[in-house]
Simulated scan of single mutants.
Amino acid sequence: MSLQFSVLASGSTGNATYVETDQHSLLVDAGFSGKQMEALFQQIGRKINKLSGILVTHEHSDHIKGLGILARKYNLPVYANEKTWQAMEGLIGAIHPDQKFIFGTGTVQSFGGIDVESFGVSHDAAEPMFYTFHHEGKKLALITDTGYVSDRMKGIIHNADAFVFESNHDVDMLRMGHYPWSVKRRILSDVGHVSNEDAALAMTDVIGDNTKRIYLAHLSKDNNMKELARMSVQQTLEGKGYMPGEQFDLYDTDPKTPTPLVLV
């Protein structure tokens, strides 16, 4: 039995992550068109019609753009908390009641051998939440779309074998960029997105002996670059006594191309 995953694509234009064991597979978010989602699945050699379900983090379009299309076309169950379901009304089209499931924030649901724990984050959505996946002693933690990482969040994701961690923006690039000040203020706020440096500082509180892989996710296309994010995170971690490349590895994610399927 194995726990594998691929960040199908991640960035300000769309987000989707695939998680599987030998018996079950789950999709977290579907932030691309139906055709784009099908193409991403083809790239990792998997089929959407084999999914056990789709887990939704929140109702922003870069996380649900293809949700309704996939759910209807492949008759897939969809899991979200009540407030997110309410916020998605009118955004994803009609979903048959038999396909709609409530996954409350701060609860655990099991899909075969995968135990999925949801936890709230701080973002300007109805009730945003992310997930940790537990299987055969392995743990995968997904956390993006949060303005900060609280002690509560850190306790839930601590010592994961693999992290998909928000590293959204470089603060200087954001401040000097073309966005209106209202948008900059929103991104920098406690309900916005985590910067490269703040992501790394949060990582220093959650990296454990089991941690082997950290994927830098949800990079802004206008206010960040892969090389800059990785350099900033690595320098901050090294300043706190952590050694990327020795204790664990840092990986990029891409807004269009999946990461290889890997064992947790």
Score class of each variant (00 low, 15 high):
R185N: 15
S150F: 14
I156R: 02
T146F: 11
G120S: 11
G208A: 04
V149N: 03
T21R: 02
I156Q: 05
S122I: 02
H178A: 15
Q247T: 09
G177R: 03
L201K: 15
I157Y: 02
G31T: 03
Y18N: 08
Y74A: 01
P255C: 13
N75L: 06
Q23R: 11
S61K: 15
D249R: 13
F165E: 03
I48K: 01
E117W: 06
T146A: 14
N159H: 11
G31N: 09
R72S: 14
D254E: 12
S195F: 05
P128A: 15
E89T: 08
V171C: 09
L51K: 04
R213K: 15
M231Q: 10
G239E: 13
E59I: 05
T57A: 08
I114P: 01
K138I: 06
R72F: 04
E166A: 12
Q109L: 06
V264R: 04
S220I: 05
I207P: 00
G90S: 10
D22F: 08
K221N: 15
A39G: 07
N75E: 12
P128W: 09
D161M: 06
R230M: 15
H178I: 10
T107E: 10
E136I: 08
H169V: 09
A126Q: 08
E127V: 03
S12A: 14
S232E: 12
Q235Y: 07
Y242C: 08
M243N: 14
M173D: 15
M225D: 11
K184C: 08
G120T: 08
H193L: 15
D115K: 11
K47S: 09
H169K: 09
D254Y: 10
G147L: 09
K138R: 15
A39K: 09
A199L: 02
G53T: 10
G66I: 06
F103T: 00
H135E: 05
D205K: 15
L70W: 02
D172F: 13
Q42V: 04
V7H: 04
V28C: 09
Y79V: 06
V121S: 01
V28W: 00
R186Q: 15
A162T: 15
H96K: 10
G14Q: 02
H135T: 03
G112W: 03
G90M: 03
H123C: 07
A71E: 12
